[in-house]
Simulated assay, not measured.
Amino acid sequence: MFRYILLIAIAFVVTLAPAIAKPIRLMVEFAKVVTDPLSGFDNLQIELTPASQQAIAEFTTEHVGKTIDVSIDGKIINSPTIQSPILGTSIMLSGPYSVHELQLMANQLTDKTSTVEIDLAKKQR
């Protein structure tokens, strides 16, 4: 009887526990600084490899409505909430960065000296 109750308790905890997503590392084809024609703000455009395009599409499809951390070399540079799946060939990142800082990130990503990682934010909004 105790074993039966324990199994039910474990099943209940497992179904209530949030799914733990594995972070994904994105492989970059190239990155560049672009200016949004509507806002005039500079952004970092990151073109992804086909494998990374598929990985981010699957990750964002599974986590619509959740906040993610986008990190370069382990430093969180942006924490957007996923509004819809990212199905394109690139991602666009904005933030409180100067053109010089964005260009430095673009150069490092294009030269493959830095890595981009996406993970669920520890603290959801």
Rank of each mutant, 00 (worst) to 15 (best):
residue 33 V to K: 01
residue 34 V to N: 01
residue 35 T to N: 04
residue 35 T to C: 00
residue 36 D to W: 03
residue 37 P to S: 03
residue 38 L to Q: 11
residue 38 L to S: 14
residue 38 L to D: 13
residue 39 S to G: 15
residue 39 S to T: 15
residue 39 S to I: 11
residue 39 S to D: 11
residue 40 G to A: 11
residue 40 G to N: 09
residue 40 G to M: 09
residue 40 G to H: 07
residue 40 G to Y: 11
residue 40 G to I: 05
residue 41 F to G: 11
residue 41 F to V: 11
residue 41 F to K: 12
residue 41 F to N: 14
residue 42 D to W: 03
residue 42 D to E: 13
residue 42 D to Y: 13
residue 43 N to H: 06
residue 43 N to W: 10
residue 44 L to T: 02
residue 44 L to Y: 04
residue 45 Q to H: 00
residue 45 Q to S: 08
residue 45 Q to V: 07
residue 46 I to D: 05
residue 46 I to V: 15
residue 47 E to R: 08
residue 47 E to Q: 14
residue 47 E to W: 11
residue 47 E to K: 12
residue 47 E to H: 11
residue 49 T to R: 03
residue 49 T to D: 10
residue 49 T to L: 03
residue 50 P to R: 06
residue 51 A to W: 02
residue 52 S to V: 05
residue 52 S to H: 03
residue 52 S to R: 07
residue 52 S to W: 02
residue 53 Q to E: 15
residue 53 Q to S: 08
residue 53 Q to G: 15
residue 54 Q to A: 13
residue 54 Q to E: 08
residue 54 Q to K: 12
residue 54 Q to D: 07
residue 54 Q to P: 00
residue 55 A to V: 02
residue 56 I to S: 04
residue 56 I to L: 08
residue 56 I to D: 02
residue 56 I to G: 01
residue 56 I to R: 04
residue 56 I to A: 04
residue 57 A to H: 06
residue 60 T to N: 10
residue 61 T to E: 13
residue 61 T to M: 13
residue 62 E to M: 13
residue 62 E to Q: 15
residue 62 E to T: 09
residue 63 H to G: 02
residue 63 H to C: 03
residue 65 G to N: 07
residue 65 G to P: 06
residue 65 G to Y: 06
residue 66 K to G: 02
residue 66 K to E: 10
residue 66 K to M: 13
residue 66 K to R: 14
residue 67 T to R: 14
residue 67 T to S: 12
residue 67 T to W: 09
residue 67 T to N: 09
residue 68 I to W: 02
residue 69 D to W: 09
residue 69 D to Q: 13
residue 70 V to L: 14
residue 70 V to D: 01
residue 70 V to A: 01
residue 70 V to I: 15
residue 70 V to W: 11
residue 71 S to C: 12
residue 71 S to E: 06
residue 72 I to L: 07
residue 72 I to D: 00
residue 72 I to C: 03
residue 73 D to S: 14
residue 74 G to Y: 04
residue 74 G to R: 05
residue 74 G to Q: 07
residue 74 G to F: 10
residue 74 G to M: 09
residue 75 K to Q: 14
residue 75 K to D: 01
residue 75 K to R: 12
residue 76 I to Q: 03
residue 76 I to R: 06
residue 77 I to K: 05
residue 77 I to S: 07
residue 77 I to V: 10
residue 77 I to W: 06
residue 78 N to P: 06
residue 78 N to K: 13
residue 79 S to I: 03
residue 79 S to Q: 13
residue 80 P to T: 04
residue 81 T to S: 14
residue 81 T to D: 12
residue 82 I to D: 05
residue 82 I to L: 12
residue 82 I to K: 08
residue 82 I to P: 12
residue 83 Q to L: 14
residue 84 S to E: 09
residue 84 S to W: 06
residue 84 S to C: 01
residue 84 S to Q: 12
residue 85 P to R: 11
residue 85 P to N: 00
residue 86 I to D: 00
residue 86 I to V: 09
